[in-house]
Design a protein around this nucleic acid. Structure first.
Lengths: 137, 137
DNA sequence: ACGCGAGTTGATGAATTCATCAAGCCATCA
DNA sequence: TGATGGCTTGATGAATTCATCAACTCGCGT
C-alpha cells in the first residue's frame, strides 16, 4: 500500500475535509467491518442497546484486551459509541444504519450461499438440499 | 498468495458445508469489499450491466493485471460474474443485493460523515457548513 | 491513600493483503 | 501458422492487520 497516499488508520473514515473520494471512504467502512470479532460485536449491539463490556466479554469469550482492541477499531470508524457509567463501560451502535447494513449483508449472503450450494449440487448431480435458514445472526 | 495455512481466500465466502459461523462468513464478505478499487469496480458495475473489462480499465485508469486481480477477488467472493463474448470479457454484479449493500453503505456513510462534520464544527465553535451531498457514487 | 476490578493502550512477531512485474492463455486477424 | 490485442495467473517484497503480553488509567470500596 502506497505510503504517501496513506492517510488511513488513525482517522479511519472521515478525513477532516473529506476530499477523499467516496469509494475510498466506503472501502474504509468495509475494512472496519472486515473481521469476525467485529461483526460479532456489532450483532450483539444490534440486538440489545447499551451493552456493558462485561456482557460482550462473556458473549464472545474473548480476552479483555483483544475485545477492547476491536472495540477501539469500531469506535475509530464511528460505528459504535461508548459511555462510562459508574465503573462499567457501555457500548451501543452509533447509528441505526449499522444494523441495516448487517441486515442487508445477511440478505446478500443468503443469496450467495444459496446459489453456491445449488451450483455444487448440480455439479455433483445431486438434488438440492432443503437449505438451512440463515434467518438468525 | 501463500498456500499452506490458508483455509481462506480460495473458498472465500462459503466453505463447502457452511459449518462456519455466519459472522465469519459475513466478515469475509466485508473483507471482499474492503478495498477502494473493488468498491469502485462494483459501483461501475452497479450502473451499467455487462461491462467489458476495457471499460473498467479506462474508467479506473488501472493497469490491466492490477484490475484483473481485484476482479478475481470479487469473483472468488461471488459478488460478480463474468462471461466471455468473442474476444472481450464482460462483468456484472452476481446479485442485485450487491448494489443494495453499496447503497446502504452510502446511507450509513452519509450519517457518519455528517455527524463527524458537525462534531468538528462544534469543537471549533464554528457554524456547521451546508454539507456537500453524497448522492452520487 | 491503597488495593482492585474493569477496561484501554502500547509494543512486537506472525499472518495477510497489496502492488508490481514477468509469463501465460485465448481469440482474432494477417 | 505466427503475430497481436485482451486478460488472467504466478511470484515476490513491501505495507497492513492480527493476536498476545505487559503496563497503565479510572472508579470504588476500605
Amino acid at each position: 500500500m502506497n505510503s504517501s497516499t496513506r492517510v488511513d488508520e488513525g482517522e479511519a473514515l472521515w478525513s477532516s475535509r473529506s476530499q477523499r473520494p467516496l469509494y475510498e471512504v466506503k472501502a474504509g467502512l468495509f475494512k472496519g467491518l472486515a473481521h469476525p470479532v467485529r461483526v460479532r460485536i456489532l450483532e450483539v449491539l444490534a440486538h440489545g442497546d447499551d451493552v456493558p463490556v462485561a456482557q460482550l466479554l462473556s458473549e464472545t469469550g474473548l480476552e479483555a484486551s483483544h475485545l477492547s482492541q476491536h472495540l477501539a477499531v469500531l469506535k475509530r470508524h464511528r460505528l459504535v459509541a461508548s459511555e462510562r457509567r459508574a465503573s462499567q463501560v457501555y457500548y451501543r451502535l452509533a447509528f441505526a444504519e449499522v444494523a441495516d447494513l448487517l441486515a442487508v449483508a445477511r440478505a446478500l449472503l443468503t443469496e450467495v450461499l444459496d446459489a453456491a450450494r445449488t451450483e455444487l449440487a448440480e455439479a455433483d448431480g445431486l438434488p438440492a438440499l432443503p437449505a438451512a435458514d440463515a434467518t438468525r445472526s
